[in-house]
């Protein structure tokens, strides 16, 4: 199958990769660019472990053809920390014990970032709705929601 050239911004850097036309964005990120933060679980857009930001919006990269990222900006969890310094949302997840097995965490953190970029002072309900596409089997969500609200407060200061 003839590969197609895909040019996109990934975590602030322009990248050009030759991809299978039927490849999903998740596969290109993980297997071509070796960014393994986004995970595959359900593979059909139900669980959010594959979430990345595409032009700032959270999407399921497992059901997004890679070519949809052409000339657009992709942010993965690897692009969130700056020179070893965790992003305030990541710090809040650690401080609040919002990480257990960690499998959902990259998607959770990115969905939270998309929310806080758009709405710096969300209510608890708005946080719950924003994270409703990201499933977590460990935490019961309470600590995750606390972490996001705490990060929001810190980011506003």
């Amino acid at each position: 199958m003839a590969r197609q050239l895909l040019t996109m911004m990934v975590n602030g850097e322009s990248v050009t990769v030759a991809v299978e036309p039927s490849a999903m964005l998740l596969d290109v990120l993980r297997h071509e660019l070796h960014l393994t933060g986004a995970k595959e679980s359900c593979g059909k857009g139900d669980c959010g472990t594959c979430a990345v930001l595409l032009d700032g919006k959270a999407i399921n990269s497992c059901i997004t053809p890679a070519m949809k990222a052409m000339n657009r900006e992709v942010l993965t969890i690897e692009g969130l920390s700056r020179s070893g310094q965790l992003h305030p949302i990541q710090e809040a997840f650690v401080a609040h014990g919002a990480v257990q097995c960690g499998f959902c965490t990259p998607g959770m953190v990115l969905a939270a970032k998309a929310l806080l970029d758009e709405n710096p002072a969300p209510t608890e309900l708005e946080v719950r709705v924003a994270l409703s596409g990201n499933l977590c089997r460990c935490t019961g969500y309470v600590k995750i929601i606390e972490a996001v609200l705490s990060a929001a407060a810190k980011l506003r200061r």
Partner: peptide, 9 residues
């Protein structure tokens, strides 16, 4: 419909 991630696309 779906979830925020689905609604974004």
């Amino acid at each position: 419909v779906g979830s925020p991630l689905v609604r974004n696309q």
